[in-house]
Simulated scan of single mutants.
Amino acid sequence: MSLWFTEKQTSSFGITAKVNRTLESENTDFQQLDMVETQEFGNMLLLDGMVMTTEKDEFVYHEMIAHVPLFTHPSPKNVLVVGGGDGGTIREVLKHSSVEKVTQVEIDGKVVEYSKKHLPHISCEYGNPRVELIIGDGFEHIIKSENRYDIILVDSTEPVGPAAGLFTKGFYAGIAKALKKDGIFVAQTDNPWFKADLIKNAIQDTKEIFPIARLYTCNIPTYPSGMWTFTMGSKVYDPLKVSIDKIFDINGKYYTPELHYASFVLPKFLQSLCK
């Protein structure tokens, strides 16, 4: 008998993976957390039945949420990561020597705990002295911060449960206040096949708050539809005007200097969401 996990991405569509064994299953204070070992993608973190990351394809998301903004800013020193308890985003941020401190605010400490245990190559930088981990509410942390960060990365789950407030115009406005005068923020904004309205609202809200607002994409096979978007808001720096000579080798598997620009080239149906 085979055991399969299916994430229902809509009421009539889902993706499925063969599970070798369940490593953890716990109803935390905030969500249902499961860690399973899959045959195709290795260990897989699930929150409320949704795939958050896997050993096989995690590098795509983490490289793209981190390096596009960090190479856009000429000298990022103080970075905030909201969410991202698996640790992959801070791992990528720390590849930039200009970064003096990464503050991570993760609401669910169990995500960090089980990621350290079962996703060690993703969570490998938690002991780095440049990292401050805060178990708490990212929304509240943003509201209490002002003119503090060069870059803010919103590495959240989908807009349900504890992450629902992280997709609102009020949150983006709070981010703008928490950023320095030349700051940049990036938020993951789901996929255009099933969440077109979410993307449209996110980019429109960002345009009303930031002088520069751009949408970019990547391909992640275990995320809904495989096509994933990120929304960037920047006070000064345009990611399309970065000199390619400034982009160094990050020793990654997905992000490249050429892809930095190419990721902003959108298919026509996605362009229409940004108007």
Rank of each mutant, 00 (worst) to 15 (best):
A163P: 06
Y126N: 15
S123D: 08
Y261N: 09
T22L: 10
Y149W: 14
L273D: 11
N219V: 12
A66P: 07
F210G: 06
L133I: 15
I199T: 02
G233W: 06
L3K: 04
H62A: 11
R91T: 12
G87T: 10
P221M: 08
S115N: 03
S234I: 06
T222V: 15
S115K: 09
K110Q: 10
V68S: 05
H96M: 10
V51P: 00
I209M: 06
Q9V: 15
K235Q: 12
K169D: 10
S25F: 07
N219Y: 07
T22R: 05
S272P: 05
W193A: 02
S123T: 05
Q31K: 05
N251P: 05
I209Q: 04
V79C: 05
D108M: 09
N201C: 13
T229W: 00
A262Q: 14
V93P: 09
I142C: 12
R214K: 15
N27C: 02
Y114T: 07
L133Y: 10
K77V: 04
V154T: 11
D150T: 02
N147H: 11
Y126D: 14
I175S: 02
I134S: 08
Q204N: 12
V131K: 10
I152C: 02
H73F: 09
H121W: 07
T54M: 02
E158I: 13
E208V: 00
E258W: 05
P74K: 12
G136R: 13
S25H: 09
S12W: 04
S2G: 00
A164G: 02
P224F: 01
S234F: 11
E40Y: 07
E24G: 00
K246P: 04
T103K: 03
D150I: 01
K180C: 01
D34M: 06
F248E: 12
Q9T: 15
M64K: 09
D29R: 15
C274R: 08
F167P: 09
H260F: 11
Q104A: 04
E113M: 13
E37F: 00
G109C: 13
V82G: 14
L179K: 02
G226Y: 02
T38C: 08
A173T: 10
I122F: 04
F248R: 10
P69F: 05
E37A: 05
G87I: 08
L33E: 00
V265F: 06
L70P: 13
Q39R: 11
L240E: 14
Y255W: 06
S25E: 15
D182R: 03
T89M: 11
A178D: 00
K169A: 12
A262E: 13
T6M: 08
D137Y: 01
A17K: 07
T229V: 13
P211I: 08
V36S: 04
I184C: 04
D238Y: 07
T53Q: 03
F269A: 08
Y61W: 10
F59C: 03
G252N: 11
V81K: 07
K101V: 07
V236G: 04
